[in-house]
Design a protein around this nucleic acid. Structure first.
Lengths: 244, 244
DNA sequence: TATGGTTGTCTATATCAATAGACATTTAGA
DNA sequence: TCTAAATGTCTATTGATATAGACAACCATA
């Protein structure tokens, strides 16, 4: 498990920090040999805390359905969440993580039209005020939410994208139907921040959780911007991989 | 400042949740008109907590240097920007952010030799146990620490890299002197986590702050790995930009 | 079936987090 | 110069968090 020490007096309870670290270790495959979390006394020693604090952390993970404690035997790992999300010219949500989970799904949360503000206009290389379609989507892997995204598309070319996306659950397919056979990632910006209220509910996080924020611009094969999006990922469920 | 629901008994103190929310609002520009955070009593009402809890949150933000309280006037916003750090085949620390700040500097914190463990050997495509040079470095922009990195280099080719780096403050120059005229970024992995104790001191962060962790592999023009590094960035000071 | 290793439960204590109220101090403006 | 509005400081109380120790209950297996 190694890594960093636990921090005290940061406003984040020790049991929550430890729960998050154990969850990460599980997802990283650290306990795959036994399929079990180390004994509570061992963890208490490793993290330098009381066994009761470890028990609080494990209770939280049990509440999430990640582990299950069995008296006399130990604490079994029930479910893992480990997703590596590759970023490249060909970045697509479902393809990237498709080989890591049984099922990926994408849901349309909301759709609307609005004029481009200065920032959106700059990104999409259009005039401010140009009408845009805005989609709010939720990416899921094995029925667990992974990312929450807001995307903007020029309305003149993609006015019907919401309907098609709702039907197919795929941006790639929607683009195809609207005359964009292929598209590429032009630029991605990544930041990290604390989860806000919407993250907590949409991504099923707990307060203080970290989200990775990816702002991305996609263009068609003529290099004309077709989509600008801001996606928020649960930092303890994904990692980004950039291959050059 | 959007929705107000704070969550209790989640292992994350109210003052930290509120500090995070206020920080987000500041970065979002919600208080740009006045350049000040709303009065403590107003915030207490909005968040539905005691004024003292708000004061704890603001004290944490003041510790981060984001706000400054002035008795009789209010709480002023001091800083809200992030540096943009490009990631590409040609990723280099100083070049990337050189046009955003007046001065970039790189410092050698420590240097040592050690044998490669299994993970390092896998990354650098060498045999485990092979001797490596390890450098601990600190990247600064305008005298503010931005990143803290640990790098490993095969000792047979780069045994003297610590000395040269200490003199020049540049990995690129050190590589040149050691017969590597150019190098490229092979892969970068990005995760986010809470700052540990070393981050707090080296990057001058306050407990609970977020760090972006970038694991990177550089190779020479024959595609032979020359450097594996793990860098930690203060998440509220930088963002990554990936250009394809 | 005896034993070692594991989780489950209980009591007690100390510190942190949050609320509540009162009042002092400073600033800006009428 | 007075006042309103804002931050600063203090005391007191309650509940959540963390430590400490002891022992019960359960499981696998020698």
């Amino acid at each position: 498990m190694a890594g960093q020490k636990i921090q005290r007096q940061t406003g984040v309870a020790l049991w929550r920090q430890i729960a998050d670290r154990i969850r990460t270790s599980i997802n990283h495959g650290d306990f795959d040999e036994t399929g079990m979390v180390p004994p509570e006394t061992t963890l208490a020693l490793q993290f330098g805390v009381n066994r009761h604090t470890i028990r609080s952390a494990l209770a939280a993970l049990a509440q999430e359905g990640i582990v299950r404690a069995v008296q006399g035997r130990g604490t079994l790992i029930e479910r893992k969440e480990r997703l590596s999300f590759p970023i490249s010219k060909r970045t697509r949500f479902s393809q990237g993580i498709g080989d890591q989970v049984r099922e990926t799904r994408s849901m349309l949360l909301a759709a609307s039209e609005e004029p481009a503000n200065v920032e959106l206009a700059r990104q999409l290389k259009i005039n401010a005020g140009t009408q845009l379609v805005r989609l709010e989507t939720l990416g899921q892997a094995d029925h667990r939410p992974v990312s929450r995204a807001t995307s903007w598309f020029p309305a003149d070319r993609f006015g019907d994208i919401a309907e098609i996306y709702r039907a197919t659950g795929s941006i790639t397919k929607a683009f195809k139907e609207l005359g964009v056979p292929d598209y590429v990632r032009v630029v991605t910006e990544i930041t990290a921040t604390h989860a806000d209220e919407s993250d907590l509910s949409d991504l099923q996080l707990s307060p203080g959780a970290i989200v990775l924020v990816a702002q991305a611009l996609n263009a068609d094969l003529d290099n004309v911007p077709v989509q600008y999006s801001i996606s928020r990922f649960a930092a303890d469920r994904v990692r980004f991989t950039i291959e050059n």
